[in-house]
Every structure is written in structure tokens, then in C-alpha cells.
């Protein structure tokens, strides 16, 4: 499952030729919101995504059951920034359940593997995996999410 906003982004990418997708990813990279001022003195509250080749940090806040994402990614890593920009645009403000239900293969469906190579895509899936883990932690604590089976 995807949020409506993320589904729309995936559809846009799917409909576009390769060169256009590259440009769109670049636009998301440029549009990634800057890290809010309040994180400046609290950088340790961000989690580093070790799977990314470049320093990449993410912070997750859950307010009233809605998820907010904050990213710190260097301009020298526009591809990873672009992926973060897509997550920010597609997931910010979504509910906890919506975020936890996101199927990680959406990036493949967007044709990103073809753009950045399947190997590099794994670093990106790791970003989503860490976001989900933090959402669970913020919402349910160490005990984790109760089984829905």
C-alpha cells in the first residue's frame, strides 16, 4: 500500500521516459526541505543511515498519530537527497499505519533501479526501513507493534 501522495509520485515516474525521470529526481533533490533550526543543536537525535555511501541522517517525529520526517543529506549526494525528497513529499503527515504499510518495492516500480542501479537502491530501501523502525519505536516503544494477525 502507498499513501495517495506517494502513489501519485510513483505514477508520474512510471509515465515518464528515463531522461525525464532523472530530471524529476533532481527536482525532488532540490526541493528537499532544509533541516529545521531546532535540530541544529540536537544533531545526535538524527539517525545515521549507514547503508548510504554518503553521510545521511533522518529524524522521525510522531505527533497525534501522524508521522513527520526530517532529513539531512549533503548536496554532493543528489540521488539520495532525491529519494529523501520523494519520501518527504509522499509520506510527511501520513498516519502511523500508512507509513508502516508502505511496500518498499515502490522505488523499483518507479524505475529508480534502472536510474541508479539496483545495488544503490538498497541503500535507499534502508532509509525507509529505518524510518519504519523509528515510527514503531515512537508509537509502540521497545515492545514493538502488536501483531495484527
Amino acid at each position: 500500500m502507498l499513501t495517495p501522495a506517494l502513489q501519485e509520485i510513483v505514477d508520474d515516474f512510471q509515465m515518464s521516459p528515463r531522461e525525464m525521470r532523472l530530471q524529476m529526481l533532481l527536482d525532488y533533490s532540490r526541493g528537499l526541505p532544509a533541516l529545521p533550526e531546532r535540530f541544529a543543536d540536537a544533531h545526535e537525535t538524527l539517525e545515521r543511515v549507514a547503508e548510504c555511501q554518503t553521510p545521511f541522517f533522518v529524524a522521525v517525529e510522531v505527533v497525534d498519530g501522524h508521522v513527520h520526517l526530517f532529513f539531512d543529506a549533503p548536496p554532493e549526494a543528489p540521488t539520495t537527497r532525491g529519494y529523501a525528497g520523494i519520501l518527504a513529499a509522499g509520506l510527511d503527515g501520513a498516519t502511523v499505519d500508512e507509513v508502516l504499510e508502505i511496500s518498499p518495492d515502490f522505488a523499483l516500480k518507479m524505475g529508480l533501479g534502472e536510474l541508479v542501479s539496483p545495488l544503490r537502491l538498497r541503500g535507499m530501501s534502508a532509509i525507509l526501513a529505518r524510518i519504519k523502525r523509528q515510527v514503531v519505536l515512537h508509537t509502540y516503544g521497545e515492545a514493538g507493534r502488536p501483531s495484527t494477525d
Binding site: 530530471q23 529526481l25 533533490s29 555511501q53 548536496p75 549526494a77 543528489p78 539520495t80
Partner: peptide
Amino acid sequence: DEDVLLYET
């Protein structure tokens, strides 16, 4: 590049 978008920036 490692990052395939870097050239475009």
C-alpha cells in the same frame, strides 16, 4: 560519478 545525478547539478 557514484551519484548519477551529480553531473546534472
